[in-house]
Design a protein around this nucleic acid. Sequence first.
DNA 1: TTGTAGGCGTTATCAA
DNA 2: TTGATAACGCCTACAA
Lengths: 332, 332
Amino acid sequence: MRNTKDRVTIYQVAQKAHVSLATVSRVINKKGNVTEETRERVENAIKDLGYKPSGLAQALATNKTTNIGLIIPSANYVYISNILNGITEVTKEKGFTLTVFTTSHSREEALQTLEKVIVTHVDGAIVFDDELSEEDVINLNSYSVPTIVINKNLQGEKTASISLSYGRLLASLIEEHYQRNDRPMTFLHVHDGGRLLAHCEHIFCETHARLNRPYQIVNVDDSYKRTYYDFLERFKETKDGYFIAYRDSIAAAVENAATDSGLEVPNSVEVLSLVGTKYANIVRPMLTSFEIDLQEVGRRAMYMLIDLINETLYDKSYSFEARLITRDSTLH
Amino acid sequence: MRNTKDRVTIYQVAQKAHVSLATVSRVINKKGNVTEETRERVENAIKDLGYKPSGLAQALATNKTTNIGLIIPSANYVYISNILNGITEVTKEKGFTLTVFTTSHSREEALQTLEKVIVTHVDGAIVFDDELSEEDVINLNSYSVPTIVINKNLQGEKTASISLSYGRLLASLIEEHYQRNDRPMTFLHVHDGGRLLAHCEHIFCETHARLNRPYQIVNVDDSYKRTYYDFLERFKETKDGYFIAYRDSIAAAVENAATDSGLEVPNSVEVLSLVGTKYANIVRPMLTSFEIDLQEVGRRAMYMLIDLINETLYDKSYSFEARLITRDSTLH
DNA sequence: TTGTAGGCGTTATCAA
DNA sequence: TTGATAACGCCTACAA
């Protein structure tokens, strides 16, 4: 019990328990070699004084912070909060602490962020951010920060990666589509949409080229509202199409615009969402989507990181394969 | 430039620049009293060695971590990610770092979390979590952790609070409803739904009592799917109603169940979402909802916290008033 | 089983 | 303008 005082130190505990601070340290860290009796005395002193060890001092002395850093873009997407959730779960379970570093759309800021990560002395980091290049991650490594990179292939002494694979599924989906149907597909391009989207777009083009089919790429704004209005315009002329969107909100924008223009989904307009979340189920028609359990990705990343820190991670890459969840926004 | 080595210390920089570490410290902290010439020498050494100060050691020496803690429930709701976003924005802008502590549905765990917050030595904390009692916050204070509490009224030497006010708006909405309409209202009760919901429920009952109107409370599960199926059942018998739900997903579940049961929204079934997010716009019919800009709440919390830390916060409470956004899920 | 003393990487106070 | 040197709060050989 205590009032607002200065921090109680290990020394004060020692004094109160009539032992040396080394002994107190031992009971805190449960390092045996302490009589039952003195241990009790110390523990009482700790309780009486309301002593809590200083993580700072501990970290400085042991060179371990039990703190891990997460680097993500500041964009406020549902799937980011999913991944965050998976990470925090394991983070707690394993007694770590999580500090979050966000990055905006500028390289310079990304570097500052990196700087902070280093200064903060994290035991390890998880990077899920396109703003950071491979060099940056390697740089992080040179400061002995074990790192798990999500969605970027990169392995090394202190680096492992998790890849999110949508490409294969996308290619086969496109092929199957044209086996039943001639409706040309349109890919919704988002400026600065990141690697994942870019890769999908690449696969999209490549597959169409291979099949010798025409296709379209259209630019959309990464916001529900803008895209909704854009497509309201578009559907005044175009009356059908198969649209592939990055994420639920954008897909829903297209779908809603179609419906509100009197077009039938999926009969006239089909829509597919690449990064599906629970909202794919909630909008109507329900969105056909690709899904990867991002929460599980977060958990996995954290488990891998812990192994990496303990130098017991042997397989330095892991891949999550997207699944197609067929719902009502596409013809089967 | 450097390879994976041990951390470069200020001492090594000093050596390389042929000065004492005190001087290096001065240039790092820009505390003047250094010749232009030696400063350059030091800065070069810093660059050459790739030196980054240890935040840990700095914090220990200065008793400032520039790290703030955020305590939130682990539940993965959109509005939490909104608030998180607001906080990180300011956090970065002001050169702080954010570490996130999550709490699950157990008091014991909440206390462990608190313990961690104290051990972590944050300069301040933002609490948005019903699991933590007022005592807990006061306890945090006794360890000199300035705290902003969201959605709980609590002020003190080192505590300020932000309240989210839905009650007034709810009461007037209910009154106006019965001025036009006799359709009885139903409040969707969620077990462990937190203070905010409980308070709304209280207002709901009270207002009905005052107006001498019948009403219903029904229990729902805090998940879209369960609620959707529950209401599919319910709508086999009940063919109308005015339902007030906690958040978008739950409201959407009711709305979708109604629509899928062949009932018309809002003509037969009306739905209101208390904590509206951008998804209120995306589902169909669009959800009438109460809204508070949670991102703004996050920003505000952070600004207040910084002032609190600097002892320049004079008004220790702030209130956000919900706005009614009338959309298509209710009759005007 | 316990205590002493040096070290972790900085800051900050004095002298020089 | 600089450089010793004592904190900061803890851990950990090593010695007792």
